[in-house]
Computed example of a mutant assay.
Amino acid sequence: MKQLFQLNTALIAILLLSYSSIFAQITLKVTVRSSDMLAGDQIYVAGDFNNWNPNSDEYRLEENENGFYSLSFYPSLGEHDFKFTKGSWSNVEVDKDGQDLGNRKFTYSGKPKQIELHISNWKDARTTAVDPPKNVTIISEDFDIPQLERSRRIWVYLPPDYDASNKSYPVLYMQDGQNLFDAATSYSEEWEIDESLNKMFQGGDQGVIVVGIDNGGSTRLDEYSPWVNSNYGGGEGASYVNFLVETLKPYIDSNFRTKPDRTNTGIMGSSMGGLISFYAAIERQDIFSKAGVFSPSFWFSDRVYDHVRTTGKNNDMRIVLLGGAKEGAGLVQNIDDMIKTLHKAGFGEPEIKRVILPDGAHSEWFWRREFPESYMWLFNENNLSQD
Rank of each mutant, 00 (worst) to 15 (best):
M1A: 12
M1N: 15
K2W: 13
F5D: 12
N8D: 14
N8T: 15
A10I: 15
L11P: 11
S21A: 14
I22H: 09
F23H: 11
A24R: 04
Q25A: 10
K29H: 13
V30G: 01
T31N: 12
V32G: 07
R33Y: 11
S34I: 06
D36I: 06
A39I: 13
Q42I: 11
Q42R: 14
I43H: 05
G47F: 01
D48C: 06
N50S: 07
N50M: 06
Y59N: 02
Y59I: 09
R60F: 07
N66Y: 10
F68P: 01
S70F: 08
E79V: 00
F82G: 02
F84W: 06
T85V: 03
S88D: 12
W89E: 07
D97N: 12
Q99D: 14
D100K: 14
F106L: 08
T107Q: 01
G110Y: 05
H118V: 11
A125W: 01
A125P: 09
T127P: 04
T128G: 00
P132W: 04
K134V: 06
N135I: 00
T137M: 09
T137Q: 12
T137G: 07
I139A: 01
S140N: 04
D144V: 04
I145N: 01
L148S: 02
R152D: 01
I154V: 09
Y157F: 06
P159H: 00
D161I: 04
Y162H: 03
D163Q: 13
S165F: 10
K167L: 08
P170I: 03
D176L: 06
L180N: 05
A183R: 08
A183D: 11
A184Y: 10
A184G: 15
Y187R: 09
Y187C: 11
Y187T: 10
S188N: 14
E189L: 15
W191G: 04
I193P: 03
N198W: 06
K199L: 14
M200A: 13
G204Q: 13
D205A: 09
I209H: 09
G212A: 10
I213Y: 07
I213Q: 07
N215K: 08
N215Q: 12
G217K: 15
T219Y: 15
L221W: 09
P226H: 05
N231P: 06
A238I: 11
A238N: 14
S239Y: 10
Y240L: 07
T247W: 01
P250I: 08
D253M: 10
P260S: 13
G266D: 03
M268N: 01
M268Y: 02
Y279A: 03
A280Y: 03
I282W: 05
I282C: 02
R284S: 00
D286E: 09
F288W: 02
K290Q: 04
A291P: 04
F294N: 04
S295K: 02
V304K: 03
V304G: 03
T310Q: 13
G312N: 10
N315P: 04
V320A: 06
L321N: 00
L321H: 00
G323Y: 02
G330R: 02
V332A: 03
N334D: 10
I335C: 02
D336R: 05
D337G: 02
M338W: 05
L342H: 04
H343S: 08
G346C: 12
E349F: 12
E349L: 12
E351I: 06
I352H: 08
K353F: 15
W365F: 15
W367V: 06
F371I: 07
E373M: 13
Y375N: 06
L378Y: 03
N380Y: 13
S385P: 14
D387F: 14
